[in-house]
Write a protein that binds this DNA or RNA. Sequence first.
DNA 1: CGTTAGTTTGAGAGGACTCAAAGTCTGTGG
DNA 2: CCACAGACTTTGAGTCCTCTCAAACTAACG
Lengths: 191, 191
Amino acid sequence: MDEIIHSIISQYTPLSAETIVDFKKYSEIRKVNKGDILVKEGEYSHELYYVAKGGARAYYLKDGKTITDWFAFDNDFISAIVSFFLGIPSQHYIEILEDTTLLVLQRQDIDTLCNKHHDFERLGRLSTTKTMLQLQQRIVSLQFKSSRERYESLLENYPHIELRAPLGDIASYLGITQETLSRIRNPNNGI
Amino acid sequence: MDEIIHSIISQYTPLSAETIVDFKKYSEIRKVNKGDILVKEGEYSHELYYVAKGGARAYYLKDGKTITDWFAFDNDFISAIVSFFLGIPSQHYIEILEDTTLLVLQRQDIDTLCNKHHDFERLGRLSTTKTMLQLQQRIVSLQFKSSRERYESLLENYPHIELRAPLGDIASYLGITQETLSRIRNPNNGI
DNA sequence: CGTTAGTTTGAGAGGACTCAAAGTCTGTGG
DNA sequence: CCACAGACTTTGAGTCCTCTCAAACTAACG
């Protein structure tokens, strides 16, 4: 657990020894397996997950198809974002893509930690800011880049994602069908 | 200024009297006019704008075309987000859409306020969270909704935006050309 | 009122979609 | 260690939405 918490701190902001003690107190380490579903549509999800090692995705259903909304691999956060922050039932599922070690925090414990420790509140602000900037980049990508450009910038952000997530999941993340992604990937169609 | 600051507080979280005094000290009220450009591509922008009354947009250039990335009307924040948070030159322009009253904060003053006042840091966390959720919704919109659906959900989020921003700006925000938006808007094509 | 910015309309091209089917990989049980 | 079932990926053909390029129309502003 120490190692995981330090990997979080080192990405964002230092925490006092006292805050770290409290942080640990409210943290749970959870090992999960490929294929596990952590959150289902319609559930209330009050948990925030930090993927220490492994991978996960958030997706939702639209017209019977699954649309991937977020990938988290080693050292990324993931949650059913809307349910978590607004306290409403989740539209998202969260699925584990490979055997994974998570650090799990409950929403109300995060609130407690934020109230109690100014430096933890800062950690919250900075991690939220980082996510906000990532989303911003995705919007730029979806707004006016071609499918091929989107796939290429995805590969820059998530090297070797093609080995860690199924093609269909990646395609829906990019806002295209899996057939189109397959054709993009296949160099013969590049001519 | 009091009124504006209270409109911010009431959206997010209460602040102590002491924090409010400090908040005011670092805040600037700025009146700007339709057509003004606050930030240009290539500049470093350390300013965060709160549109108290009026409207603004952020856009960038791609292949010689302007692509709108963000609208802010009454009681919204706007900034050259990447430059502001990462301290790098801006890809964005910020343009004023109608005569507008802004509250302006400098990045380093925000840092000072966040360091000094735990409750201000919370305000930062919560406002960032709100923006993050808005971006999330836009991604869902861009990912797999048709142009018409996207336009309809834009109208829900920004009622009467068609009266406050030019069609071309709205079209690029939606990730479509202005011709396409014009056709969507025109009921004759709905048949 | 003329000039310019903004919007609409038209025609044709192209990228991505849908539906369908074949091919490939992977993991489990015999 | 092989065979088979189910999951995943590729390929094909036809369609449709949105794009591009072009031009006409309308509104706003000095």
